[in-house]
């Protein structure tokens, strides 16, 4: 804005306080992440990859569990009672168990990651 009086424009400059900067290389991985260096991105990428792998593993389980069922029921048109029992009452418990398994795994991945970057 060239027409503006330079004295009117106030700019507030902020930044991380010096005190909080680590003086040694002790917290290195975390600093890399904070400052978005290439190495920091590599850490984040590795976390994303582990989490995606966990998600895909459970998803594959879900597909294997549910995917063949319509084919199975179509192949056995006389097994009506089986279809009622499986679809009506049998699938909810496995779904909840899969969810619990995934949450445990995802939280463990995150704990491991925190331990890694905090170098504990």
């Amino acid at each position: 804005m060239p027409n503006q009086d330079p004295t009117e424009r106030r700019v507030v400059v902020t930044g991380p306080s010096r005190r909080s900067r680590p003086t040694s290389g002790y917290y290195r991985p975390r600093t890399e992440i904070d400052e978005q260096t290439t190495l920091g991105h590599t850490y984040v990428r590795s976390l994303m990859r582990t989490q995606l792998r966990a998600a895909l593993a459970v998803f594959a389980f879900l597909v294997l569990l549910v995917g063949p069922l319509p084919l199975l029921f179509a192949a056995m048109p006389d097994a009506r009672r089986l279809e009622w029992v499986v679809l009506g009452f049998g699938l909810y418990v496995p779904l909840v168990l899969l969810a619990r398994w995934y949450v445990g795994r995802a939280e463990r991945n995150e704990r491991d990651f925190v331990r890694l970057v905090e170098d504990r």
């Binding site: 998600a55 459970v58 998803f59 879900l62 699938l91 909810y92 779904l95 899969l98 969810a99 995934y102």
Partner: peptide
């Protein structure tokens, strides 16, 4: 409807 929540949780 239920499994939709599992997929939502995963991804």
């Amino acid at each position: 409807y239920t499994a939709g929540y599992l997929v939502l949780l995963l991804f």
